[in-house]
């Protein structure tokens, strides 16, 4: 996934408004065979969350335990680094992920 500085800047304009939102897991999976950039993180859960604001999002779940992998689990959105490694442009890329409440 190629991320240029401009693309990142455009995206991050809306990131701050998405932090700290609460919701519930409505579907979950554990990715064991990831895309190339996520290899060092696998296995990791990816969920669809229904937020209290009525929006839905697909997010990576962080700070999780097996007991959190269930439909109905409450979560809150957090800001996290996207990849462990930095991209070629040396920019540290942050995105919205979520953690169990």
């Amino acid at each position: 996934m190629k991320i240029t500085p401009v693309k990142l800047w455009r995206r991050q304009a809306k990131v701050s408004s998405q932090i700290g939102k609460k919701g519930k897991i409505i579907a979950w999976t554990t990715i064991r065979i990831p895309s190339k950039e996520f290899t060092s993180q696998a296995p990791y859960p990816v969920i669809i969350v229904a937020l209290e604001s009525k929006e839905k999002m697909t997010l990576q779940l962080v700070d999780w335990g097996m007991e959190n992998l269930k439909i109905g689990q409450e979560i809150i959105t957090v800001l996290r680094r996207l990849y462990t490694e930095d991209g070629g442009d040396g920019i540290i890329h942050y995105v919205i992920k979520c953690k169990p409440l």
Binding site: R11, V46, T58, K97
Partner: peptide, 26 residues
């Protein structure tokens, strides 16, 4: 896996989703 994920959305790619992952959610 990465190339096939070009059929998904930016948000899904940033969440680390894959096509098996998206169908797993279904």
């Amino acid at each position: 896996t990465t190339a096939l994920m070009s059929a998904g959305s930016d948000e899904e790619r940033m969440a680390g989703a894959t096509f098996p992952g998206l169908y797993a959610l279904m």
